[in-house]
């Protein structure tokens, strides 16, 4: 366990140093992260000024969802997506062999391949946006609500990680898809608003097939204390089932991998 903690720290440091190589880019990147997080609020402001409303969601509640979205996006952009790009590249060039040969768990190495340190800012901005929503509401979430939201955060992370594993597995079959990571990110953009803005089949899809509702809407509802415990429990169970499927697919995919040269 301690060995893996050390390995993790090492991977993190390598990413930081790689980022610092391009000095200008590094500085601008930090600023860009902040700018993007704040620009994400602009539509919401326009929304509010035009007196628009989503049924069941006031402006402060919408802020909580957008904050939660920003937080999760920071997690994905910082810890999930960069590694994804690295693995897809490994698979395409056949250098995944070197990773598999290393004396450490391959899935661990592959999942920690690259980090974007700056995205911590997004997470902080996300927390701040959530917080401002509660300031506007004039109350704070109770301990139980907070615990529920954290549990759902873990579930959301599990779902994200499982999706990640599924995408990587797909890369074993369809090798030439460098832009899978971007597709993944742009679908996640639909989690920006409460799932109630979608209707019919689309809402069904975003709740059960690509569980975006689980990622931002349900945790926000838990924080706001409007989530029914049964729904929350179902969401957690769903996340666990999803993770089990992803693990299964990954196993089959890695068994299929025959490297680029053989």
């Amino acid at each position: 366990m301690r060995r893996y903690a050390r390995l993790f720290a090492l991977q993190l440091r390598t990413s930081l140093q790689t980022g610092l190589q391009y000095r200008w880019d590094f500085v601008v990147e930090g600023l860009t992260g902040l700018l993007f997080a704040l620009l994400g609020l602009l539509p919401l402001w326009v929304f509010k000024r035009n007196g628009a409303a989503v049924p069941g969601w006031g402006f402060p509640e919408m802020l909580v969802v957008v904050g939660w979205f920003t937080l999760l996006k920071g997690l994905i952009d910082g810890a999930v997506n960069p590694s994804l790009i690295v693995v897809v590249d490994h698979i395409r060039r056949g250098t995944l062999d070197f990773v598999l040969l290393k004396p450490a768990d391959a899935q661990f190495l592959v999942s920690t391949g690259k980090f974007e340190p700056w995205r911590v800012l997004d997470v902080l901005v996300g927390v701040a946006i959530c917080g401002s929503g509660f300031v506007l509401l004039g109350r704070w979430p109770g301990a139980l609500d907070l615990a529920g939201a954290l549990l759902l955060l873990v579930s959301a992370a599990l779902v994200l990680y499982s999706t990640w594993i599924l995408v990587v597995s797909a890369a074993f079959w369809v090798v030439r898809l460098d832009n899978l990571a971007y597709l993944f990110m742009s679908i996640f953009d639909f989690a920006r608003w409460p799932v109630t803005v979608f209707r019919g089949a689309v809402r069904f899809a975003f709740t059960f097939i690509i569980p975006l509702a689980l990622m931002t809407t349900y945790p926000s509802m838990a924080l706001l204390g409007t989530l029914r415990p049964a729904t929350g429990a179902l969401a957690v169970a769903g996340a666990l089932g999803y993770a089990a499927v992803a693990r299964l697919v990954w196993r089959r995919a890695i068994a299929r991998y025959t490297s680029a040269s053989s």
Partner: peptide, 14 residues
């Protein structure tokens, strides 16, 4: 990957 117009359509349509 051009999902942004659809994401925003959902919000403004509602």
């Amino acid at each position: 990957t051009t999902t942004m117009p659809l994401v925003n359509l959902a919000l403004w349509h509602t």
